[in-house]
Amino acid sequence: MIGFKQKKKLEQEQKTQQATASVTGIVSGGEVRKKGYEIRVQKDLDELEPKWSDNLKTENVDLLNHFTLTLSPDEGIWKNHAHVFDISVPDEYPIKPPKVLCKTKVYHPNIDQEGHICLNILREDWKPVLNLNAIFTGLHFLFLEPNPSDPLDTEAANVYEKDYDKFKRIANNYMRGNYSKY
């Protein structure tokens, strides 16, 4: 006899598998050796807009589960400054979202000093229909419209709201490699 909890867990796993299959279009004939994320990443890359696909790199073109994106915002405080993002795609993608870190040190209400990013679609609002295009557009949007009302770096958010000029000064200093906050 399998216990109730075990059964529940099995059911959950089956459901996840079915959901993965329906999203990626893989037939679960038992013979699938490829990892779940692969087909979906291929499709995502195929659909990528030129402004992202021209600036995306990977150290392993065969695995396609780890990328760096160089994003230079086209407007706003961080205009034309190259920001490098590290994107890791989990095997469960697109059921689970990719992990994204900002490798360039940046003074931003929604990005902390370790490069963690607070973007809704990377966590709570992630849905399997979203894709790399949506994530990259979301990251770009953070630079165009920082969101100080839902901050990750509370200090930066405070300065952004109370003393915008000071915020701009510090952010500019960061881009020149000066990480003092005065």
Binding site: K34, Q42, D46, D54, T58, L63
Partner: peptide
């Protein structure tokens, strides 16, 4: 599975 033969859309 585990190998890219050709992928035209991403420059690199």
């Amino acid at each position: 599975a585990g190998k890219t033969i050709y992928l035209p859309n991403v420059k690199m």
